[in-house]
Every structure is written in structure tokens, then in C-alpha cells.
Design a protein around this nucleic acid. Sequence first.
DNA 1: CCGCATCCGTTACGATACTG
DNA 2: CAGTATCGTAACGGATGCGG
Lengths: 120, 120
Amino acid sequence: MSKEIDAVEWRSVCPMCSALDVIGDRWSLLIVRDLLIHGKRTYSDFLAFPEKISTNILASRLDLLTRLKLIERINPKGNARNNAFQLTESGKALRTVLEGLGKWAHTHLRDFHGGIAKIS
Amino acid sequence: MSKEIDAVEWRSVCPMCSALDVIGDRWSLLIVRDLLIHGKRTYSDFLAFPEKISTNILASRLDLLTRLKLIERINPKGNARNNAFQLTESGKALRTVLEGLGKWAHTHLRDFHGGIAKIS
DNA sequence: CCGCATCCGTTACGATACTG
DNA sequence: CAGTATCGTAACGGATGCGG
């Protein structure tokens, strides 16, 4: 049976809010982060996150990010096995935002976080 | 009975991930957005969001953001009534991130969003 | 094995009613 | 006005199954 996942529901016309409608969750940007660092990643690469994403969440995020064209399969027609994902131009455009977030956390979350690491 | 809200649970030592542990949800950054624009806002100002945040979510976010020192009450010892919030330095430091997010959405989410508006 | 989908218990969210 | 209590719903998270 074909999976039918609903479209994103936009809460308002504010672009910032629309960004949060899409990537305002705890996992989507971590997937983008990994792709920014490594260029391409497979399903099992993502599963090896130190943050331990579960399989159903990963699958749904990959699907959503694909439909929004932030990521894409490297070999769209190929077999799913060992097929990797990479960022589209839209996904790559998140680099400065992600870097800004990381720097912000590194500077301003220090006092609340015992073992915060260097910026990766 | 006194409200006891747990601390943030940090998934990893990655700063970017820690940022998402804190503001990786659909509402926190919208509160920051409003404070960046208006300087200070009351509880009812936030409730007037076009995105329609509900009262319990708003209260819990304001509490969390306060404990993380991203926002603070203007008159900490005063009565709650008509008491407004403003950003701390940590909160203000999110401006560039927020602006980046807005620009990104405006550019890359156009095709998926019927009525996306100008950058506010 | 790898890439998911499914089941299921738990947690977060969201709408609404209510209190000081 | 500024929250809190309640409760139904949706999302999450872990375990497991299953096709290729």
C-alpha cells in the first residue's frame, strides 16, 4: 500500500514561521547537518547518529525533506539499498543558518550544558 | 501544587544539536522573533500571534526560555499582570539566525507555499 | 544484512474551560 | 489578564517484522 503523507500545514504567511513549519523539530536539521559535513549519507549512516534517531522518525524525515526538495537521492532510479542522500541547493543554503545556530549554542548554552563540545 | 518542569535533556555534546534541544520546536523561535521586532511583549501580545499559540504552550515556552535566560521579565518583582518580557543578550544573539531562517524560507519555500509573505 | 513499515506505549501538543 | 487543569489528539521512540 502506498504511503500517503499529508503536506505541510502552513500556520501563517510569515517566512520565518514557514521555516519552522518545515524544520522546526528536533531532527530535520541534524540530518542536514550531517549532509553538510559528509556530502552524502545513507540510511544507516543517519541511524548511527550519536543522538540515536529511531527508524520510523528517520524514514518520515527523509521523506519530508525529499518532498520539500532539501535533499535528494543520489541515484533516484537505483535500488534503495546503499543508496545515499545528498543536499539540494535549497538544503545547502541552510549552511549559514546551521553554523549560526551552532555558534550561538556554543556561546550561550555553555552554562546549562555540562559537556558541550567544540563546533563540529 | 508547585509546577516542576524538568531541565532540558541534552542528546549529545554537539552544539548544533543542543541548540535544537532548546529551540527545536515550532514555537520558541516565534516568541523570540516577536521580541526582536517589538522589544517587549506581554503574555496577551503573544496570544495574539496570527499562528494562534495556545495558553498552556505559551506558558511552558515562556517558562523554559526564561530558565535558559533567553528572555526575562522586565519587572521581575512586579505583579504578573501586564508584566512584559524582553530578550536577554543571549536571546538577542539569535537575531542573525532568525533573519537567516526567514531569508532561506522566503527563497527556498516559495514553491511549496501559496501565500508566503515578505520578510517581516 | 539494509531499508524501511508497523505496532504500541509514552510523551508533547492543542483547544477549551476554568481560577485568582 | 495571566496563567492552570483537563482531556482528546498527534508526534515521538523503541521493538520488531519483512521484502529485496
